[in-house]
Amino acid sequence: MRETLDALEADGVHFLGSDGPRRVAATREEALAALDDFLDVPLGDFGPFEDAMLAGDGVMAHSRLSVPLNLGLLHPLEVVERVVAEYEAGRAPLGSVEGIVRQLIGWRDWVWHLYWHLGPDYTTSSNALDARTPLPASWWSLDSTELAAELDAACLSSVLTQVGREGWAHHIPRLMVLGNHALQRGYDPAELTRWSQGAFVDGTPWVMPANVVGMSQWADGGVVATKPYASGGAYIDRMSDYCGSCRYNPKKRVGEDACPFTAGYWAFLDLVEPSIRGNHRMAQPLAGLRRLADRDQLVAHERARTHY
């Protein structure tokens, strides 16, 4: 992924956030301008790089239209119609247009209906994995000095710093960095939901329950997602440029330089195995866990880890 992104930049492709942090739209005029901006430049690159992450560019080809959409400054169909028109005019590839349409009238609309279907007690009554660990104080303060002192993992430090600076990160850092870490470390899902609602500028209360409790933390036991969304450092290494500058090795699961995501993944499976062994989608990962020769050493190291 890093090589592909380097090649694109060499060819003159620049993502939306490559000039540094930009204001999210907070008025109707700004919302329309942001939509025009997205259609004019990043839309074509959205599809191929929707799930990629760059340490120096937290926006990339993402629109950040979730803020004006959630504020009621744009209507979802308004965005969909404009995006589809770009495809019909031959100015945008099908993959990028499909990705936007699927997010807006697929996932976003589904999450809206889930909010009403699941009811007001969904967040506080869902904790299938018995996750009780409080969020670190640094997550609540999002103070860059505190984060730098506590975190060595380049991905985790970079994403939390961006959230503190901009109140925003796109869906993969939220799910596969922040959510993945919280899942592995057993952070309380209700507290994580409250944090997400306050930390993100698009953290509208109806958005976060299904996304955090259901999708990210599997706290509802499978109502929203069919399996826990956990992964090791290999995924982050494949989809980003974080690992090259990180003191942790995504290929190592034991030792002082063991990646907290790689080691954390196996320690998480060890902890929750009794709760998920009946899930057929977890059969292969659990079989891999049972084959680990260093399982006891890995688990002991991760239970004692205090620095990430």
Score class of each variant (00 low, 15 high):
235 Y>F: 14
59 V>H: 14
88 E>D: 09
17 G>F: 06
182 A>C: 06
287 A>D: 11
265 Y>I: 06
140 W>K: 06
202 D>W: 05
207 V>W: 12
180 N>L: 02
160 L>T: 10
173 P>M: 01
34 A>E: 14
157 S>D: 14
159 V>R: 00
22 R>M: 15
66 S>W: 07
255 G>P: 01
216 S>W: 07
172 I>P: 01
247 R>H: 14
52 A>Q: 10
170 H>C: 02
158 S>T: 15
241 D>W: 03
28 R>W: 08
79 V>G: 03
275 S>F: 13
139 W>V: 00
199 A>I: 02
206 W>P: 13
246 C>T: 02
50 E>L: 15
32 L>P: 04
40 D>H: 14
211 N>A: 14
189 P>D: 00
219 A>R: 05
39 L>G: 08
294 D>Y: 09
234 A>H: 11
52 A>T: 10
114 L>P: 08
125 S>F: 08
257 D>S: 13
76 P>H: 02
176 M>E: 06
114 L>Y: 12
66 S>A: 14
207 V>L: 11
40 D>I: 12
6 D>F: 15
13 V>L: 09
232 G>T: 00
13 V>M: 03
11 D>N: 13
18 S>H: 15
16 L>D: 06
87 Y>D: 05
28 R>C: 10
160 L>G: 10
83 V>C: 06
299 V>S: 03
234 A>R: 12
237 D>K: 14
65 L>I: 02
65 L>P: 08
288 G>Q: 14
266 W>G: 04
84 V>H: 01
136 P>M: 04
228 P>K: 00
179 G>F: 00
138 S>T: 10
291 R>F: 09
89 A>L: 12
42 P>T: 09
111 V>F: 09
69 L>D: 00
67 V>N: 05
72 G>S: 04
105 I>F: 11
157 S>N: 14
170 H>Y: 02
123 T>W: 04
131 A>G: 11
139 W>Y: 10
95 G>F: 15
200 F>T: 00
216 S>E: 10
293 A>V: 09
102 R>L: 04
220 D>G: 03
199 A>W: 01
104 L>C: 01
280 H>I: 11
176 M>C: 11
54 L>V: 12
38 F>Q: 03
3 E>R: 07
155 C>F: 11
113 H>A: 11
148 A>D: 06
65 L>C: 01
14 H>P: 07
286 L>D: 04
111 V>D: 05
140 W>R: 10
3 E>W: 13
127 N>F: 10
208 M>I: 11
135 L>I: 05
24 V>Y: 14
73 L>I: 04
19 D>H: 12
